[in-house]
């Protein structure tokens, strides 16, 4: 069972990345455009109630791709809106904590003191 569990994470995660690659290649878009599209897609799926089942199914396969960022923001706003109504939609946006952003800021800040860009070819 544990094998199926990891396989699902691999396959679902891989498919989300594959979709990203197709958007990039066929749409001739920059990574920035592609990731923005995926985040919006994650938020929309979350709003339709479709993202949580995906997480239940694939675990890391659905929480690691950037789409889950849109999902967690949406769910955070939903929770606040449910409690406080109209005001909640706004305050919800500000109360949503995203470990992704804070982790990236902290590690980015630390890295800026440790590392230098190297510029070696692949």
């Amino acid at each position: 069972m544990i094998f199926i569990d990891f396989l699902l994470a691999f396959v679902i995660g891989g498919i989300i990345c594959l979709i990203g690659q197709l958007i990039m290649d066929y749409g001739k878009l920059t990574p920035g455009h592609t990731l923005s599209i995926l985040v919006v897609a994650g938020a929309v799926l979350s709003g339709l109630g479709l993202y949580q089942p995906l997480i239940d199914l694939a675990g890391g396969g659905a929480t690691i791709p950037i789409t889950s960022f849109g999902h967690s923001l949406t769910q955070g706003a939903f929770a606040e809106a449910e409690k406080h109504g109209w005001v909640g939609v706004l305050t919800g946006m500000f109360e949503v904590t995203s470990s992704g952003i804070s982790a990236a800021i902290v590690f980015g800040f630390i890295a800026a003191f440790i590392f230098k860009p190297k510029g070696k070819p692949n």
């Binding site: 990039m24 920059t30 990574p31 590392f115 860009p117 190297k118 510029g119």
Partner: peptide, 8 residues
């Protein structure tokens, strides 16, 4: 992009 950015 920044040098260490992993864009293809």
């Amino acid at each position: 992009y920044p040098i260490e950015y992993g864009g293809k």
